[in-house]
Amino acid sequence: MIKVGILGATGNVGQRFIQQLAGHPWFEITALAASERSAGKPYEQVAKWRLDTDLPEEVRELTVVPTKPEAVDADLVFSALPAEDAIKIEADFAKAGMVVCSNASAHRMEKDVPLVIPEVNPEHLGLIDVQRKKRKWDGAIVTNPNCSTIMMVVTLKPLMKFGIENIHVSTMQAVSGAGYEGVPSMAIIDNMIPYIGSEEGKMETETLKLLGDFDGKQVKEAPFWVSAACHRVGVLDGHTMSIWARFNKKVTPEKVKDAFLKFDPKLSDLPTSPKKAIIVREEPDRPQPRMDRMQGNGMSISVGRIRAGKADSIQYVCMGHNTIRGAAGASVLNAELLKKKGYL
């Protein structure tokens, strides 16, 4: 078993990490790190458990430790830290020899840091060797993308063969993406908010890195552009988005559907990987967050309403669980890929 720690363990994504890792066949939770005010106390005392499953027995009495490398007994750490804290803390852990699988945005776009979705660009893990050589680290930082970016890019991967020219996307994002206290109830009930700070920029830049080509030294970004509009809606979990994909040749809805159905990233040997990365819904009113977010234990992306658009474009809707597929589950899947590739 590989010893793992969780940074930011008391927060929304930190709790999802615990849920995803409890009873994991490869990883054992040996450290939970949080703020100084929580350190030194049992986890069940300081964490307000907010998930719909019981707090796992294996972490109830685990003493919370400070978020410092010398306090964390682990070989691998999962980071649920805010970006402003992650920028330094994650680097400190990597310098100390630990591998950091980060959900934070702080390091995603650094040229020597892998930004990875295992179904999309596993070869980008080769940047770890570049990173270690450049920074003289024994550890490493590996990141997963923004939650809405993950949903979209998994569906774009099987469409790359058609020659993507540009992408327009409009998101309807769940309130859990902002954290438990992120959106006041009186702001979102009977309302929607047509702005999520920095979200649109992340979708527009991260997508190009994820779908770019790695030449052994660096990633050359994908040769198209993305235009995003992001909205917060009154849904608990599950990000939904409408996507307009324009291609440089004629593509039919039938070909797109067939590409989705045949998409096989060959990750069945990874414990967190779903049986189907993409699930195609035939109903005219699906996918829906409440109905479809837990498909594949929250790790599958559901698509529907695949139809022809204007000027060689295809329109469709995709949806996935933002704190599992789009956050904690994504980092755990990255860690499983790291073990498979021999980096752990």
Rank of each mutant, 00 (worst) to 15 (best):
P122L: 09
S242C: 00
L125M: 09
F17Y: 11
S227C: 11
M294A: 11
L338A: 10
T30Q: 03
F93H: 02
V64Y: 01
T252C: 07
R60W: 05
Q218L: 14
A277F: 08
G139M: 06
P82Q: 08
V59F: 08
V226K: 10
V235R: 04
V77Y: 07
N121L: 08
C101A: 13
P118M: 03
L344P: 01
A94I: 00
E283G: 09
W244P: 00
G139I: 08
D75M: 11
H24P: 08
P118W: 02
L156P: 11
N322S: 15
T240D: 00
V99C: 08
Q20K: 14
G177R: 06
S227Y: 13
M109R: 08
D138N: 14
D215L: 06
S105L: 10
K340V: 08
W137E: 06
A330T: 09
K310L: 12
G182F: 01
E90S: 07
I167S: 05
K161Y: 02
K133Q: 13
S185Q: 13
I2W: 15
G216C: 00
P145Q: 02
A22D: 05
K310V: 11
T207H: 02
I6A: 01
K310A: 13
Q173W: 04
G163H: 07
K41I: 02
L21M: 09
V13N: 06
V116T: 10
E36S: 12
N191R: 12
F78P: 06
N166C: 10
A31C: 06
M1Q: 13
D138A: 12
